[in-house]
């Protein structure tokens, strides 16, 4: 993943949970920072849509090698991964 163009918010976990909940899942069951996205039915199409959302919102383009279960398991895990990349010098 490249470094995001837009500064990440301090509550990135919450922002991601909201973004994912609103765009990918049924709003009747809200997504929290620790929701297991794969248990909730995140599939190939959903992961791809999520990657596009991250790129559109923060300019964070995901590289093919970064599409791992570990990074996408929960909004909190994804936030940790994005923060780590934001702090990595390029």
């Amino acid at each position: 993943m490249n470094r995001p163009h837009t500064p990440l918010p301090s509550d990135l976990e919450v922002a991601l949970a909201t973004l994912i909940g609103e765009n990918l899942f049924d709003p009747a069951e809200p997504v929290t920072a620790h929701t297991d996205l794969f248990e909730r039915g995140l599939d190939s199409m959903g992961i791809m849509q999520l990657a596009i959302l991250l790129e559109e919102k923060w300019g964070a383009a995901i590289s093919p090698e970064d599409f791992t279960e570990e990074h996408f398991k929960t909004p909190a895990a994804l936030a940790a991964f994005m923060r780590q990349r934001a702090e990595t010098p390029q």
């Binding site: 599939d43 190939s44 199409m45 992961i47 791809m48 093919p64 090698e65 970064d66 599409f67 279960e69």
Partner: peptide, 12 residues
């Protein structure tokens, strides 16, 4: 499938 596509995509 995970290994072949290098991650989490089963469909391809």
């Amino acid at each position: 499938a995970r290994h072949t596509t290098g991650g989490i995509f089963l469909m391809p």
